[in-house]
Nucleic acid binder design. Structure first.
Length: 925
DNA sequence: TAATTCACG
DNA sequence: ACGTACGTGAATTAC
């Protein structure tokens, strides 16, 4: 390549969008509140190319503002595309300035898109003897590929680039000539560009057809070989397909001059460049142009950010300038003989703390088998102990480490330790002593960011660990078990994980301290982790027979409804498809002229919309019923029995402690926090959640109105405080205030409206939202809200204060210090800002409630353990705890639970807990 | 894979 | 003019 002329042509907007969205979860914002995600990401990719590919020539093509020749021939072209985000619009001038400073030419031709310009220039360059690379993630460019013109395409996920020459394009699209890509696009269409294509033909269909018939022309020569709907569509939409062909064709006749000299890569203009990088606060980028490094001691990602939260320095798929295992001196030992076991165990036993990580055969801790375990207590030094297959042999080896794992004096560090603890539990190892989970620590200290180890390693350590996919392959086809991984590779991977996790602990520990989160972490979250492990291991028993019987009843009703609906409609259609339901309702039956549409232009057919249509047509009720029953059947009645663990006969959910931004837990596999209760049919499912045997009862305990009580506490609103302290019916009391009537005269409707308003208050009320929910006019809703604030003025003050705090600090906090970052609080976009403002109101409330129940759980479990009770805590549903109670212990447990929950903390209002018992969850409620 | 819908607190 | 109450997870359809 060195003696050849190589030209790189970059599709600016495609790369800018990509960069912008790559950072969307943790945008880069400089101290002037400019979102620099797009600028940073784009510049990084550009530098990467310059460095790695060392091109002799390079240019960047931009789409000009205003219409192009495609709009002239087809008005809807790109019409429904969402407006360019404001942040990108602001970024573009900076990018152009940067390019100017780098002496890189910008290509922009009125009336033509960037791809046309690239196509034209590529063709001319090829003739002039260049090797041309078109850098873009847009697959449409594949049509331009030729002998010396290739695509340089960032991979969709993960790092790296794909270079697509003729053979790759032939393979990827199943065609012989690159220009057949246009034929494929003409059939397939492109939703993003509003290119219609042919109805009923998607990516797969288009590829199949073109690989067989070669071109659009070829199709119509043999049109009789097609059958049915497809033939019909091909004929009916012939014109549309031909138009699509024209739209999808990249023009190579753009009026532009090709001047080789102008495109030559040359030295940047440092006088322009450095001040610009300074302004953008891209300090880490300056050394790449020969400027002195900023502060080498600082973690690479921690500079110049609005809220002291880290940002991603590098973006998956755009660059990969992280250090890896090959760049760092390390010593990873394989521990696989008696002497080595003994000396490792001995060394561990004298440590104050160490990090460990288990490797297993799967992701489900309850059924996975141990394959290995790694330990580290010193940076870059780590030990891997393979565990042999077979229960007895495995037990024999892991037993050598039982003592150190159960040693109360040693702090155990790990990433997602709940998993490791659950796995070890099956080998009769009960991890004891203080623990430090890096995932949970990160979620507390730097909330709102991904807490995966890979993300943290890259962000805080500038280091990219070996990916598990590299060892066992991507999930799906032929994924290996970790046991099948070659031992040397397994060692490198596992030992590295323990090593990295230890380093992350050292990074996170001071962060917790600085944020004043140590108490919450050590006194609540870490003990809770052990409680959750216990709950998950215990599981909950499911009455599968009960569910199967229910399934039969549901299916009968569904079949009947289905028959009725199709008959009423007088046409076959899939009732489960919102799209088809919309078409039947609004086009076929025309039951409402002004149908609502969703973002993507479909008819909206959600419950809210349908409910409003109820009186208009008998089919609506039936569709709603059908939907409800189908949902019940597929999401719960049929799904739950499949998740019963064959070894334990129980359901073991996984609680995620580092997922929810407000501090709540979430539950997956299955989600046991959304089991139906509101409707009669759905409630039936709770009957299948039963006690372990007839000697146990189901105890359910839930906080009454915690969030409203917290609003009372946080706002110190005198009326709210008084109502709770007097044990009043809070919704009725609210109604009495708002409607200015005595408590006795509050009607059911007034109470209902007040109740909805109370919920609204917690969520950061809006007149629109309240109006929607109460089905009243917006002005009426506004009066209601005004009335509320008039009567509870301190609530209004609290709400304003919360927003003020968020604006000031960039985050809000719970009573116990848990933070939520709100980077959008100063957004110029009112919708986005409004959302952040409501978050500012809601997060302290929801988050404090989460903190409280977590503290209660820790206390209750401690009591259960200390008194050696047999009853078990089995479920948490945000404000509710459920127990499988030994009948002999019932009184004791009730006392422990009630006290544990009500005395979890001291507030200006009492916490109140309702309890119920029964033989299943339904009865206990 | 995204969009839609709907289950819970 | 636009798009709206807070926080989740799962199943499904259709691209």
């Amino acid at each position: 390549m060195s003696d050849k002329k190589t030209l790189f042509l970059l599709d600016a907007y495609a790369l800018i969008y990509r960069a912008y969205y790559a950072f969307i979860r943790a945008p880069r914002i400089n101290s002037k509140k400019l979102n620099t995600s797009a600028i940073y990401g784009f510049t990084n990719s550009l530098l990467e190319v310059l460095q790695k590919e060392n091109p002799t020539h390079l240019a960047v093509a931009f789409d000009p503002a205003g219409p192009t020749f495609r709009h002239e021939m087809y008005e809807p072209y790109k019409a429904q595309r969402e407006a360019t985000p404001e942040d990108i619009k602001l970024a573009v001038p900076y990018i152009k300035q940067l390019l100017d400073a780098l002496n890189i030419p910008v290509l922009e031709v009125m009336g033509y898109e960037a791809d046309d310009v690239v196509g034209t220039v590529a063709l001319m360059a090829e003739k002039a003897g260049f090797e041309v690379y078109m850098m873009t993630p847009d697959k449409d460019y594949a049509q331009l590929v030729s002998d010396h013109v290739k695509m340089y395409k960032p991979r969709s996920k993960g790092g790296g680039m794909d270079i697509l020459g003729i053979p790759e394009v032939q393979e990827k699209f199943g065609i012989e000539e690159p220009d057949q890509v246009i034929d494929i696009l003409a059939l397939q269409g492109d939703a993003a560009d509003n290119i219609p294509g042919c109805p009923g033909i998607g990516e797969k269909g288009a590829k199949d057809i073109i690989s067989k018939y070669k071109s659009i022309k070829g199709i119509y020569e043999k049109i009789d070989e097609f059958k049915g709907k497809r033939k019909e569509n091909l004929i009916n939409f012939k014109e549309q397909i031909e138009l699509s062909y024209t739209l999808a064709t990249i023009s190579r006749k753009v009026p532009i001059e090709f001047n080789e000299e102008d495109l030559k890569v040359c030295e940047p203009d440092k006088d322009k460049l450095f001040p610009l990088l300074e302004e953008l606060e891209f300090k880490s980028m300056m050394p790449r142009f020969g400027a002195p490094a900023p502060t080498p001691a600082a973690a690479p990602a921690m500079q110049g950010d609005l809220f002291g939260q880290p940002q991603v320095t590098e973006t998956p798929g755009i660059t990969s300038t992280f250090k890896t295992i090959n760049d760092v001196d390390h010593t990873y030992y394989l521990v696989d003989n008696e002497q080595a076991y003994a000396s490792l165990a001995a060394e561990l036993s004298v440590q104050k703390e160490y990090c460990f990580d288990t490797e297993t055969t799967g992701l489900d801790a309850i059924s996975a088998e141990l394959v290995g375990i790694s330990f580290s207590w010193k940076e870059h030094e780590s030990y891997y102990v393979p565990i042999p297959e077979g229960k007895d042999k495995a037990q024999e080896i892991i037993n050598r480490f039982k003592l150190v794992l159960e040693d109360k004096k040693i702090l155990k560090i790990g990433q997602n330790l709940k998993y490791d603890i659950l796995v070890l539990k099956k080998y009769d190892i009960n991890v004891k002593g203080q623990i430090f989970d890096t995932m949970v620590a990160h979620h507390l200290a730097l909330p709102g960011l991904k807490s995966s180890m890979d993300f943290m390693a890259e962000t805080y350590l500038g280091y990219s660990p070996v990916k598990i996919e590299e060892l066992i392959g991507k999930k799906g086809k032929n994924q290996l078990s970790f046991r099948q991984v070659e031992i040397e590779k397994a060692k490198e991977y596992a030992a590295e994980d323990a090593d990295i996790t230890l380093q992350l602990k050292k990074f996170l520990e001071p962060k917790l301290k600085e944020s004043g989160l140590e108490d919450l972490f050590y006194q609540t979250e870490m003990p809770l982790l052990l409680v959750l492990a216990e709950m998950e291991a215990t599981g909950v028993k499911l009455d599968v027979d009960e569910l199967n019987a229910f399934a039969i009843k549901l299916k009968e009703r569904i079949v009947t409804l289905e028959k009725d609906i199709l008959e009423i409609a007088g046409k076959e259609f899939n009732i489960a498809s919102p799209k088809q339901v919309g078409e039947i309702l609004f086009e076929h039956l025309k039951i409402d002229a002004k149908a609502k549409k969703t973002k993507s232009g479909q008819y909206s057919t959600n419950e809210e919309t349908l409910n409003k249509l109820k009186g208009k047509h008998e089919i609506v009720d039936k569709i709603l019923d059908y939907r409800g029953l189908k949902k019940l059947l597929s999401t719960y009645v049929e799904a739950l029995p499949a998740l019963v663990n064959p070894q334990t006969g129980r359901i073991h959910t996984t609680y995620n402690q580092a997922m929810v931004v407000t501090g709540r837990l979430s539950s997956t596999n299955p989600n046991l926090q959304n089991i139906p209760i509101r409707d009669e049919d759905g409630r039936e499912i709770r009957k299948a959640f039963i006690t372990s045997d007839a000697e146990h009862v189901f105890l359910s305990a839930d906080y009454s109105q915690v969030e409203l009580r917290l609003m009372a506490h946080l706002s110190q609103d005198e009326h709210l405080l008084r109502a709770f302290n007097n044990g009043e019916d809070i919704h009725a009391a609210t109604a009495a205030k708002i409607y200015k009537v005595p408590l006795e005269e509050v009607s059911a409707d007034m109470r209902r409206k007040a109740k909805t308003a109370n919920f609204g208050i917690i969520y950061g009320i809006s007149a629109f939202g309240l109006a929607e929910r109460l089905n009243i006019s917006r002005s009426e809703a506004k009066e209601l809200i005004d009335g509320y604030f008039e009567n509870f003025p301190q609530v209004k003050e609290y709400m304003d204060k919360s927003i003020e705090i968020a604006r000031d600090k960039g985050y809000v906090q719970t009573v116990f210090g848990r933070k939520r970052n709100l980077p959008d609080i100063n957004s110029r976009n009112g919708v986005v800002r409004g959302m952040a403002e409501r978050n500012a109101i809601n997060a302290p409330i929801q988050g404090t409630a989460a903190d409280i129940i977590k503290m209660a759980m820790v206390t209750i479990q401690k009591e259960l353990d200390e008194q050696q009770l047999k009853s078990k805590m089995i479920l948490q549903v945000h404000d509710e705890l459920n127990f499988d109670v030994d009948k002999n212990e019932l009184d004791q447990i009730k006392e422990i639970v009630k006290k544990g929950m009500e005395n979890a903390c001291e507030l200006s209002v009492p916490l109140s807990v309702d309890m119920g018992i029964g033989s299943n969850w339904h009865e206990a409620h």
